[in-house]
Design a protein around this nucleic acid. Structure first.
Length: 564
RNA sequence: GCGCUCGUAGUUCAGUUGGAUAGAAUGCCAGACUACGAAUCUGGAGGUCGGGGGUUCGAAUCCCUCCGAGCGCGCCA
């Protein structure tokens, strides 16, 4: 399902690869190792359409002159290569490839033919099914900005994997077991009692946010004063569960509003209740990956790359968080997932080694990968927005969405490499100007939609039909037209490379570049002219650009408006 | 002390796994509409890629060392 123009490039790569093999034979015994030919697009058009540095790496391996190898690759004596207009060797040893006329206009025809499917591939079909877990949170409060970032990251990665042909599911893990739920219950009880004028001291480490008061109102609406008279154990359990359910629903609503959907919300509590944790610990023990010491049971994680062993079951018999994770990840693997990706918050990198060790101990070494969503600093212009967990003034994802909108939030969170610290300027995100990359990209899409509307309104509907059929694309040739076509041709490769490198920010960069190339084309080439053939050709290019813009924005979870 | 992430233009960041003259946005300076949306475009200035050493035809990228920032090192979750 590779696109036609990528298939055409493969033919060139294969031809060069075989010439390289011939060159190796002529060099002799030094040339036992033959590097793979890759053919990336050139940055500088004067270097042709594509260029390979393979002669340079071959020359290094073979200890000979790079130009000699490059010349052998560019040699025409045994005939040309299909689809190639010219080959040339360039110092220090690049081979520049110029494609035959019609190559770039062919790309436009292909985009129009495949529409929303253009750029899709089956490059990663062999890797799945993949399960991506992200934004796993304590159900004790609203989602914060870092969780927004990991939501944006995870959802975009899921879309990218799917676009590249991998079967992929999204999942989040609800940490609804452990002490934090008791703390939530105690906080909720204090707020709830206050509604009846009963003074219950607020717990020392309780959750100070106002949202707990909202939950208390909901509890009173449902149950009246019932819990003022209940026993402490029953009350703690009931209030913990009530608070958990209300808050998880709010988190789910926030995520849906954010355009992030999870196929599964997995409850940690179900692992404790169903005996899965006891079972997995016993299993690890029988298989020799866990042992008893000092009255506790330890995972032998040092065998799998961790720097120390980790407790699974405490000496008082209670399982640790890691034990629950053992059960959870065994469950994931038993559900048939071949590869697991977990996105964790910035303060959890110490957990990576033991998670990998854990999955290895479960019998699937190397099948989990952990990505970190680094921290986010919020600012508003020059002013840094203070966020302190202790003071209870953390900024929530919902507040960010309220202030800048979903599109800007999704785009800003995804715009930077996951592992780099992010400075999020709320003032910039709401600005409707060239400074704001979201609007720059969306404006490109709206501008094209406007041209298409204009074409229809001015009686050019027949030309629009010709354009959709790519009838006249052979007439494209202006440098701005070729630059745009080149960019569109790079969509599939960009997605596949970006997903392989776990670099979703490159899709944002790509979308910005498509928009930029379109704006350049728009300025340099008038679309709606008196020349029907030229108009039809440029309409084809515009429609193709709109299609690719819309597809990249869809991957990013950002809307592609027809007018703004 | 050990570990993880990072250090690139005034600022915010890319840099496709070692390739051609280190790129973009923003900010600054100078320009461009009597046509399809100026929320746009064109040009210019701006760099010791944290410092130093090494590997080679070639290093922001790999190795060593030092400096700096953030985070983590629990029978917490």
């Amino acid at each position: 399902m590779k696109s036609r123009h990528l298939a055409a490039l493969s033919i060139v790569e294969d031809a060069l690869q075989s010439r390289l093999a011939d060159a190796a034979r002529s060099v002799g015994e030094n040339a036992s190792e033959i590097p793979r030919v890759t053919l990336p697009p050139t940055r500088d058009p004067s270097h042709g359409d594509f260029a390979t540095p393979v002669a340079l790496s071959a020359a290094k391996l073979w200890k000979c002159d790079p130009m000699k190898v490059a010349s052998a690759l560019a040699d025409h004596r045994d005939g040309g290569i299909a689809g190639v207009a010219s080959l040339e060797a360039a110092r220090p040893g690049f081979v520049n490839v110029r494609m035959a006329p019609g190559f770039w206009s062919g790309v436009i025809a292909e985009v129009l033919e495949r529409g929303d499917d253009y750029g899709r591939s089956d490059a990663l079909a062999h890797t799945g099914p993949v399960l991506i877990e992200f934004t796993s949170a304590n159900p004790t409060g609203p989602l914060n900005v870092v969780q927004g970032r990991s939501g944006s990251l995870g959802a975009t990665l899921v879309e990218m994997f799917r676009f590249a042909g991998a079967t992929t599911a999204s999942e989040t893990y609800v940490n609804d077991a452990g002490a934090q739920l008791d703390t939530l219950a105690a906080s909720l009880y204090a707020r709830y009692a206050a509604l009846f004028g009963v003074d219950v001291p607020f717990p020392e480490e309780g959750y100070p946010g106002d949202y707990v008061i909202d939950v208390a109102h909901k509890l009173r609406d449902r149950d009246g004063d019932k819990w003022l008279h209940a026993g402490p154990d029953e009350r703690r359990r009931a209030l913990g569960k009530f608070g958990r359910d209300v808050i998880v629903e709010e988190q789910r609503a926030d995520m849906e509003r954010f355009g992030v959907h999870f196929d599964v919300w997995f409850s940690e509590a179900t692992l404790h209740d169903g005996g899965a944790i006891d079972d997995v610990v016993a299993d690890l023990q029988t298989r020799g990956f866990a042992y008893e010491k000092d009255g506790a049971i330890w995972l032998r994680s040092t065998d799998c790359g961790d720097d120390r062993d980790r407790v699974l079951r405490r000496s008082d018999g209670r399982p640790t968080y890691l034990a629950a994770d053992a059960a959870y990840h065994r469950d994931k693997l038993r559900r048939g997932y071949k590869y697991l990706v977990n996105i964790l918050g910035p303060d959890h990198h110490g957990y990576i080694a033991r998670l990998s060790a854990l999955v290895a101990a479960l019998g699937h070494p190397g099948s989990i990968e952990v990505l970190l969503a680094q921290q986010v600093t919020l600012k508003r212009g020059d002013e840094t927005v203070a966020m302190s967990k202790r003071a209870g003034n953390t900024v929530t994802l919902a507040e960010v969405m309220d202030e800048v909108g979903v599109d800007a939030a999704r785009f800003f969170f995804i715009e930077r490499a996951p592992e780099s610290h992010l400075v999020f300027d709320l003032a910039l995100a709401v600005e409707h100007s060239q400074k704001n990359p979201v609007f720059y990209v969306q404006y490109g899409h709206a501008r094209i939609a406007s041209i298409l509307r204009k074409a229809a309104e001015t009686g050019k509907s027949a030309l629009l039909e010709r354009a959709r059929a790519a009838a006249d694309v052979a007439h494209l040739g202006h440098p701005a037209e070729i630059a745009l076509a080149r960019r569109l041709s790079d969509f599939e490769r960009t997605v596949v490379d970006a997903v392989n490198d776990r670099a979703p920010h490159r899709i944002a960069e790509y979308a910005r570049n498509v928009a930029g190339d379109f704006h350049g084309f728009y300025t340099g080439c008038i679309v709606l002219t008196d020349d029907d053939v030229l108009t039809s050709a440029r309409l084809s290019l515009s429609i193709a650009a709109k299609t690719v813009l819309a597809s990249s924005l869809r991957i990013l979870g950002v809307s592609a408006p027809d007018s703004m």
